[in-house]
Amino acid sequence: MSAKLERLSQSLRKILGERMKSLAVDRGEVTIETVASDYFEIARILRDHADLCFEQLIDLSGVDYSACHGRQPGKRFASVAHLLSITHNWRLRLRVFAGNDDFPVLDSVCELWPSANWYEREAFDLYGILYSGHTDLRRILTDYGFVGHPLRKDFPVSGHVEMCYDEEAGRVAYQPVTIEPRENTPRIVREASYGDAGHG
């Protein structure tokens, strides 16, 4: 671990202490996890504390962990924010799991970083995570009137409906998809030493 990452993780431990659920350093990146109730407060400290100073929210994305191989059973939806500090030149990943899998709600951080506005709309659109406190939580990438959340793991790649031109009605209409989903290369997780000499 480089000196800089060491310094960042020490500051995080000192300032956030017990409020972090976990802190991990992997491949030169620091990830902290927090519970939904502390999320907004921690985000505020990360932005405002002089030793951390994360002025920029670079990215915020939803993740659906329901099909993740080898993961302990736990909450399904998470919101992952990537923060950047221009002052200290370091990055941080902040992950928070939504408490309820059927109705995932998290606090919005738009107030702290205006750039979160569209990112949260996107996570809402693609994963159905609701951000309370967001003033304009509309769909953003999918079509007007789209049903479902396409990046959830239980949403098929080919979708549920397709668009066609309805001759009789003289307009564009939706119909159930006519293509069969197919998988050319199956998804495989191999054991660690797979393919090494003597391991078949």
Partner: peptide, 18 residues
């Protein structure tokens, strides 16, 4: 930016393009 999550498979678990 590319945020990639792998669960050890031959395909990404999640790719987020920033």
């Amino acid at each position: 930016g590319v945020y990639a999550i792998s669960d050890g498979a031959n395909k990404p678990y999640r790719i987020k393009l920033r």
